[in-house]
C-alpha cells in the first residue's frame, strides 16, 4: 500500500458522503425545476400557511423547545458545570421532541379536507409529494429549531466551542428527522388516535440520527474532533432523504386505497 492508497482510503468515506449529499441536492433541485408548472411549489408555499392555520407551526414547536430547555435545570439542578456538560444532549433531545410533536400535522389537514386524495391523482408523483411535505415540515419546524438552539444554549451554559457544532449538527440532522417523521405520519395518517402510535413508531427510527447528532454536538462542545460522527450524521441524512420518500409514498398510496 503506497501513500496514495492510504490517503485515498482516508478520504473515501468523506467523498462518498459528499457525493451522496450532492446527489440529493441535485435531485431536490430537479423536483422544483420539473414541477414548477404543475404547482408543486404552490404545495410548498402553502405549507407555512397551513401550519399556522393548524395551530401554530413555527410557534408551538419553538415554545415546546423552550419549555423543555427551561425544565431541565429544574430537574437536574442549577449547577453550571453539570448543565454545560449535558447542554448539547439536552438541546438535541428538545429539538427532537419538538419535531416529533408536530409530525401528526404533516398530513392531517390534507387528509381531513380530502385534498390528499386530490394530490394523489395529480401529475406530481407521490414520492415528490411526500418529499415536499417533509421539506415543508423542515422549513416550518426544523429550521426554526436549528436557529433557536444557540439562543437556548445560553440558558444551559453551553461551552463556547459548542455553539457552532450544535448549530451544524442540528442543521444536518433535522432534515433526517423531518423525512423519517413524514414516513411515520404517512403510516398513521388515517388513524383516529394516531398520535401516540406515531411516537412509538418514529422514536426508535430516530435513534441513529440522535446518537450521531448529539455526539457531534457533544464532541464539538468538548473541543474534540467531530469528523467521524459528522460524516455519519451527514450520511444518515443523505440516505434517508434519498431513499425514505419511496417508502413514505408507498405507505401513503396504501392508506389512500
Amino acid at each position: 500500500m503506497g501513500p496514495e492508497a492510504s490517503l485515498l482510503s482516508r478520504i473515501a468515506p468523506g467523498v462518498l458522503w459528499i457525493g451522496a449529499l450532492l446527489a440529493c441536492l441535485l435531485s431536490l433541485d430537479r423536483i422544483f425545476a420539473l414541477d414548477w408548472e404543475d404547482g408543486s411549489l404552490d404545495l410548498l408555499a402553502t405549507a407555512p400557511r397551513l401550519a399556522v392555520r393548524a395551530g401554530g407551526g413555527f410557534g408551538l414547536g419553538l415554545a415546546f423547545f423552550l419549555i423543555v430547555t427551561v425544565l431541565v435545570p429544574f430537574g437536574v439542578g442549577p449547577e453550571a458545570s453539570l448543565l454545560s456538560r449535558i447542554a448539547p444532549g439536552v438541546l438535541w433531545i428538545g429539538a427532537l421532541l419538538a419535531c416529533l410533536l408536530s409530525l401528526d400535522r404533516i398530513f392531517a389537514l390534507d387528509w381531513e379536507d380530502g385534498s390528499l386524495d386530490l394530490l394523489a391523482t395529480a401529475p406530481l408523483p407521490m414520492e415528490g409529494i411526500v418529499t415536499i411535505k417533509a421539506l415543508a415540515h423542515w422549513i416550518t419546524t426544523g429550521l426554526p429549531l436549528v436557529l433557536a438552539a444557540p439562543l437556548l444554549g445560553v440558558l444551559l451554559n453551553l461551552p463556547q466551542a459548542g455553539y457552532l457544532w450544535v448549530l451544524v449538527s442540528l442543521a444536518l440532522g433535522t432534515p433526517a428527522l423531518s423525512v423519517i417523521g413524514t414516513f411515520g405520519a404517512a403510516l398513521t395518517v388515517g388513524l383516529k388516535r394516531g398520535g401516540l402510535l406515531l411516537s412509538l413508531l418514529v422514536l426508535p427510527l430516530y435513534v441513529p440520527t440522535l446518537i450521531f447528532g448529539a455526539e457531534v454536538a457533544r464532541r464539538g462542545a468538548e473541543g474534540l474532533t467531530v469528523q467521524t460522527p459528522l460524516l455519519m450524521l451527514a450520511g444518515i441524512s443523505a440516505g434517508t432523504i434519498a431513499l425514505l420518500p419511496f417508502a413514505s409514498a408507498a405507505v401513503l398510496r396504501i392508506n389512500l386505497r
Binding site: L187, F212, E215, M232, V251, I254
Partner: peptide, 28 residues
Amino acid sequence: DTAADLTSILCLVGSVFALLSRYAVNFW
C-alpha cells in the same frame, strides 16, 4: 390487507434502522 401492507413496509424500514442503530450504539 392495509395492516399487512403497512406493517411489512414498517418491518423493512425498521430492519434498516435497527441495523443502523446497532452500529450507532457501538460507536457511542
